[in-house]
Design a protein around this nucleic acid. Sequence first.
RNA 1: GGGCGUGUAGCUCAAUGGUAGAGCAGUGGCCUUUUAAGCCAUUGGUUGGGGGUUCGAGUCCCUCCACGCUCACCA
Length: 519
Amino acid sequence: MTRICQGERAPIMWQPTNTPEQDRWNSLQRLGERGIPAYPNRVTRTHTSAEAIRAFETLETVNPESAEGIEVTVCGRIVRQNLKGKVYFAHIEDGEGRVQLFVRVDNVGEDTYDMVKRDLDLGDFVQATGTMMRTRAGEVSVLVHELAILAKALSPLPIIKERVADDGTVERYGAFSDVEERYRQRYADLAVNPDTRAVFRARAATVKALRTFLDDAGFLEVETPILQPLYGGAAARPFVTHHNQLHQDLYLRISFELYLKRLLVGMYDAVYEIGRDFRNEGVSFKHNPEFTQLEFYQAYTDYHGMMDITERLVAFAAEQVTGSPVITFEGNVIDLTPPWNRITLRDAIRQQTGIDYVDYPEAPALHAAMKAAGIDAPPDSTWGKLVDTLLGTAVEPTLIQPTFILDYPRDISPLAKTVPGDDTHVERFEMFIGGMEMGNAFTELNNPIDQETRFLEMGRLYAAEDEMATPIDEDYLRAMRYGMPPSGGCGIGVDRLVMLLTDRSTIREVLLYPHLRER
RNA sequence: GGGCGUGUAGCUCAAUGGUAGAGCAGUGGCCUUUUAAGCCAUUGGUUGGGGGUUCGAGUCCCUCCACGCUCACCA
């Protein structure tokens, strides 16, 4: 895809590759011959398409005659055109909507009309000056008396024909729908599919809502390193990169956790970060190598406090983005209004499978019990992983309505405090909505001695049974030794939240540029 | 990485192993209120790449590439 221009290899200029492109190329040449700039520097616009229509309709109700006189200059991309002899209709589209241009040879003159007829194509950007009017068919339009091309489209966009029914529903014909091409040429997808544009507006609204909520709740937004000498805070394989001058390998972060909690030591009461995490692992409908994460931490609270904030935060975001805390996802009506269901992991697994994992404290026994219940797991799984498999296969898909699953086995949660009176479990929850894991939180472990012990245990566990050993972050332990207030922390997968709020079933639909294999 | 599936014109899709097609877009023509405008004519293809079977392959076989679904992986 990328052309590199260097050395002996002369770069090859682009040339038309098919007939539509050749025709547009010819138009470009003709424009040049007539001294018409196809890509002028200067543009003017007095109204967006929506403003022009609104201005007309507002005045029309009061004084229809003066409404006809409103003069506008509008700009946009030609998305429909209809040449009818000496009359030409076109719809132009801008970021806010569409307006129809009505071009008559009588109004623009033979020269311009000839240009319109021969050399304007779907996809071109134009600027039109004229007066507002209503056509015989009733559509508010610009009766054009000056028309200029703003940018020639040399390649044809897969522009869609659509019919708007009387009830307002839009029927589309031949939509640009090839999934791979839509992702690889997202600009084309966005240009022709308004639904795609809507998804990313909703995404922006989601992130804005998260910020607004947390800012208003007294959280401070911070930024922590993406390039890290040590990675941690989650169990995932990292991407590795290298700093040349420092002769140092660096990792792209897999979570923000350890850096954010250092800030609680530094006497901020509440902090959050929204940013990118990178995990060098499998790609799926809910996994992308880089993804957007929200993590927030608050002092003087615990995981109960995190549940209260989280359910209000998500309900707020849903209201800001969709207008209601009740949403539809994959055909299910989901009510995000607090309070959400809360159930312990142990009870949830017991309900769905009849297995009480406490009865099987060793991996082989639990594995056997699972097998008896028809649940497969890799033979070399640790006990904690088996519990996670039970959660993932038997519980997670059933959690359509928002649910907090509480209290996880200690040995899969090294950064959380244990449940008082139960050394085997920690105060941790994961939230599930629409059958997907959306977030993860705990009562943060702030005992430096306990923390170091857990790290060492994890190291042993992984060294023995898993290739994914996590390095010990000594500086984090030093920070803990200075003292961190009792705190709660939570991480939410922003991409998955956007999937939920926009009713998209794959993460790629909510990423502008999802990861794709190089072609 | 495994399994299943898909890949045909710019876009959306057809085509029993027997001459590669349609709609839209494009081009030429008619049309001064159209809106999936219409009517007439017309261009456009190394059927993802490579190899094989066959008199003959878009179709069957092998292989490679990409994508989708799914499983595995994923504190």
